[in-house]
């Protein structure tokens, strides 16, 4: 029988939490091995970055939803970290198989990769819970149901991340994890929003990359970006 919107939202949350029940909020043994195999071990940077981004996330969560909800923000972040580690491990396994390498030093020492991956994981968590709080109006830490205010592209601002870099992880993230149809649809919506609008905003990294591409062909006239 078809589920009510509330039941569907609850099921979605249970699925996410169930999928992560055996995931830790620290790197697994397998993931730690990938870190150790790097020319430069990224472990300490990864942990420090998570602490910094965690504080930023919880603070902004509290500012958006209400100061009583900072603890709730920390819970969301912890769930996001579990998903981040889980997807990272799956991505690395897939890359190892594809490229026949075990040293991913450049990728794992790239702060943008980690921030993008964490942002995507948190977007999944926020979208999952956001649906629930929207549809169960009245249950909150004391205020209007506002977790939908934290839907994409809110996370980009919190992490000072460009849409262009966030875009890079979306497809691999979907491939790496068994996300629900609704969440895949949500990430697809984020992807389309980036491609259609956000990536073309003034100051976007995309224009610099286009300029670099065109510098290879001096005779070609480059259009100035539209404001």
């Amino acid at each position: 029988p078809p589920q009510t919107p509330v039941r569907a939202a609850m099921t979605s949350i249970q699925q996410l939490r169930g999928d992560l029940i055996s995931s830790g909020d620290q790197p697994s043994t397998n993931l730690a091995t990938y870190f150790k195999n790097c020319t430069v071990d990224p472990t300490q940077d990864v942990l420090k970055r998570l602490e910094t981004l965690g504080q930023a996330f919880s603070q902004r969560f509290g500012q958006t939803v209400g100061p009583n909800c900072v603890v709730l923000g920390k819970q969301r972040f912890t769930l996001g970290v579990k998903l981040y580690y889980k997807v990272m491990e799956a991505m690395l396994k897939s890359e190892e198989k594809r490229l026949s390498v075990q040293n991913f030093s450049k990728l794992l020492n790239d702060p943008t990769f980690h921030t993008s991956l964490l942002a995507c994981a948190l977007e999944v968590v926020m979208a999952t819970y956001g649906e629930s709080s929207f549809k169960t109006a009245g249950y909150n830490c004391g205020g209007e149901p506002s977790e939908t205010d934290m839907r994409f592209p809110w996370i980009l601002d919190v992490f000072n991340l460009t849409a262009f870099n966030f875009y890079k992880v979306i497809e691999s993230f979907i491939k790496a994890d068994s996300l629900s149809k609704d969440i895949i649809k949500h990430l697809e919506t984020c992807e389309n929003l980036i491609m259609e609008r956000i990536a073309w905003r003034t100051g976007s990294l995309l224009f610099e990359l286009l300029r670099q591409e065109h510098e290879g062909g001096a005779a070609e006239q480059v259009e100035t970006p539209a404001s």
């Binding site: 991913f104 450049k106 990728l107 992880v169 979907i174 149809k181």
Partner: peptide, 21 residues
């Protein structure tokens, strides 16, 4: 099932997207 379109080719992955190839 979903209808997300996977655009990456077999020789493309996260390593290439972050210039790590």
């Amino acid at each position: 099932s979903h209808d997300y379109h996977f655009g990456l080719e077999d020789h493309e992955g996260i390593s290439e997207l972050f210039d790590c190839d």
